[in-house]
């Protein structure tokens, strides 16, 4: 990706688009930022593979649709100031932003697009591309629609990932589930930003691993060979962390969301989300089987070693933080 200098330009424009969208003080400005962001991501996606062309086409169609609906609603807003049908416009804006962020029930494009992308692009799609829509959603919280989206996102994110063998699709569904949590965090306070940062961190360390070992399907995980079993063991803690199991870092944002929702008496919504997260945990843990079963035989086909590379060091550092980070952060949390 970085060998092609035009991609660096598009990457910069991509970031600029998001920044314009989140710092705009009018909806028009936000729309402009979203468009810039979209048009910069399209060329980034293509890497001379058939799948990526298909993915970029799908991405373009859905995002362009969402943008036009968004623009339509913004203009409606402009025309209808002072009238009391603001709910309708809010709903249209919100649904177009939900479509942009890929949360259920507007999620159908998301796993399909993910399937055609390289891991780095998938990472951008799962994390950076969510910033602008989520930030804009946090301006127009229309509760009935948001609740529907929370429930559906956590539900679809959990059930969709169950039967997947492709890791990209699996990560996409996990992203949808986490999006449900982020929307829930947004529902009554600003902790969604923190949830988003933690989610980005954990996803980054997962994608870093998948990208480094060129893993796309579950069976590749099972034949992934390490000279030192304990390294594989440690690396797969990341998945448990992403699933939000207690001793790992991923539990922290979930804890904050649970706390904020409890404080607002959303107990049943919360119970539902927690149960759905349990299902996501099931498919995460399915990926970890080969790592956690130490006496498990893999093909030792991979003859070259990654241990010395700087990527591996980065990966190990990230895994370390995502495994033991909870203890560090929680002690900080209690001090301040």
């Amino acid at each position: 990706m970085f060998n092609n200098s035009s991609k660096i330009m598009f990457l910069t424009i991509l970031m600029m688009g998001s920044l314009i969208a989140i710092s705009a003080n009018s909806w028009m400005g936000a729309w402009m930022g979203l468009e810039i962001n979209l048009l910069a991501f399209i060329p980034l996606m293509s890497d001379n593979k058939l799948m990526s062309t298909e993915a970029s086409l799908k991405y373009f169609l859905t995002q362009a649709l969402a943008s036009s609906v968004f623009l339509f609603a913004v203009i409606l807003f402009l025309l209808n100031t002072g009238k009391n049908n603001a709910n309708l416009m809010e709903m249209i804006i919100l649904s177009s932003l939900l479509l942009k962020s890929g949360s259920a029930p507007f999620h159908f494009w998301f796993p399909n697009v993910m399937e055609g992308l390289s891991w780095i692009n998938a990472l951008i799609l799962m994390t950076w591309q969510k910033i602008a829509p989520l930030m804009l959603i946090s301006y127009v919280i229309f509760k009935p629609l948001i609740i529907i989206s929370i429930i559906l996102s956590s539900f679809i994110g959990a059930l969709g990932g169950l039967n997947q063998t492709s890791l990209r699709k699996l990560m996409a569904y996990s992203s949808i589930n986490h999006l449900g949590w982020m929307l829930a965090a947004m529902y009554n306070s600003n902790i969604w930003l923190m949830y988003f940062l933690f989610y980005t961190f954990l996803t980054f360390s997962m994608v870093l691993m998948f990208n480094m070992f060129k893993i796309s399907y579950i069976n590749q995980l099972f034949s992934l060979f390490f000279h030192e079993k304990s390294i594989k063991f440690f690396l797969f803690f990341n998945l448990l962390s992403l699933g939000g199991l207690p001793p790992f870092l991923g539990f922290l944002p979930k804890m904050f969301v649970i706390q904020s929702l409890t404080m607002n008496n959303q107990l049943f919504l919360l119970t539902f989300m927690v149960m759905m997260t349990l299902i996501t945990l099931y498919f995460y843990i399915r990926l970890c089987y080969s790592a956690f079963m130490l006496n498990y035989y893999e093909n030792s086909w991979m003859t070259f070693s990654y241990y010395k590379s700087s990527n591996m060091k980065l990966l190990l550092t990230f895994s370390y933080i995502s495994t033991f980070g909870l203890f560090l952060t929680s002690s900080l949390y209690f001090f301040f």
Binding site: I258, Q259, T262, M263, L267, T271, V274, M275, L278, L281
Partner: peptide, 13 residues
């Protein structure tokens, strides 16, 4: 986990 996650909600309550 199936029963202890509801307990977490109970604890926050």
């Amino acid at each position: 986990l199936l029963v202890s996650l509801p307990m977490l909600i109970g604890i926050f309550y």
